[in-house]
């Protein structure tokens, strides 16, 4: 059971990472960053984080509530994955 969950998490992270890879406005190669690395420190602008937010909503067919639209939510791939799992678990 636990393994299944870990596998699902890995897949979600891959999907999130592919959205970063497709965005040309980012000054970094997402492959070179860990899930925990701070994306703002790596050069992600506020506006790029908005683009990522919208892309994630589309990819996962979800909508972030206002309380989650913070700098912290989008600060790392891990934080984003945590937020997406909260949203998708709620809707399941």
């Amino acid at each position: 059971m636990r393994l299944v969950k870990l596998e699902a998490r890995r897949k979600m992270i891959d999907r999130i990472r592919s959205l970063f890879a497709r965005n040309d406005a980012l000054p970094f190669d997402i492959e070179k960053l860990s899930d925990q690395d701070n994306l703002y420190d790596a050069g992600m602008t506020s506006f790029a984080s908005v683009q990522i937010m919208l892309a994630i909503e589309e990819e996962f067919d979800t909508e972030f509530p206002e309380r989650m639209l913070t700098r912290r939510t989008f600060a790392s791939v891990a934080n984003i994955a945590e937020a997406v799992s909260q949203l998708t678990e709620q809707s399941n």
């Binding site: 984080s49 908005v50 639209l69 913070t70």
Partner: peptide, 14 residues
């Protein structure tokens, strides 16, 4: 817009 909420939060946090 909604993205703007995030921009606004970022601006305030910083």
């Amino acid at each position: 817009g909604r993205g703007g909420k995030m921009m606004a939060n970022n601006q305030r946090d910083q």
